[in-house]
């Protein structure tokens, strides 16, 4: 009986101490983590829109849309996050589209767990640059092992068709939704 009480006391005190330690570290770290995530998004926005000087955040439903403007306040386009399933895990991207909602300004892959050396090539400039000036209507599609013929096509990465296709699918779904949201 005495031992039971001792066990309860030890575990309770330990739980309290551990909880207190976690509260402390959480309060220290969470503003820094939020800042890191904001910096990452901001860096991606200005990479897609090199002339961008500032942006407004608009929240539609659960999604954020960033209206990016140049130094004279002229609207350069919209940037928005897009994520979905890749070959091995989730792919997170930031997508930029011109104000006419018909031409992509570019994409930036923020996070992905694709196969190193194959699917992970979606994070390279060479792949991402294909999306600059790409037409989104009727929808983005991909071709294999040849140069794209149409303004809405990209060339899939050799040996990583699934990853390339995943990027295209995520973009198409997200763009269709963003068009609806922005026209509301």
């Amino acid at each position: 009986m005495k031992n039971t009480i001792k066990m309860i006391i030890v575990l309770t005190v330990l739980g309290l101490l551990s909880g207190a330690a976690l509260v402390f570290i959480y309060r220290y770290a969470s503003p820094l983590i939020a800042q890191n995530q904001k910096d990452e998004t901001e860096k991606a926005i200005y990479k897609i829109f090199p002339e961008g000087k500032n942006y407004d955040t608009r929240i539609i439903g659960e999604d954020s849309v960033y209206k990016v403007k140049d130094k004279n306040g002229k609207l350069l386009g919209y940037a928005f996050p897009a994520s979905g399933n890749g070959y091995q895990g989730q792919i997170d991207m930031l997508v930029g589209i011109q104000p006419d909602l018909a031409t992509l300004a570019g994409i930036e892959v923020l996070d992905s767990q694709e196969t190193p050396g194959l699917g992970q090539e979606i994070t390279t400039e060479k792949f991402e640059n294909q999306f600059k000036g790409l037409k989104v209507s009727p929808s983005i599609s991909y071709v294999k092992n040849q140069k794209p013929q149409n303004p809405n096509e990209i060339e899939a990465i050799t040996g990583a068709t699934v990853s390339s296709k995943a990027v295209v699918t995520i973009l198409n779904e997200r763009i269709a939704k963003i068009k609806k949201d922005l026209n509301k």
Binding site: A21, L22, I25, Y26, Y28, A29, S30, L32, I33, N36
Partner: peptide, 9 residues
């Protein structure tokens, strides 16, 4: 958890 938050921050 402390190490995880520290790295993230």
């Amino acid at each position: 958890t402390c190490a995880d938050y520290f790295l993230k921050a």
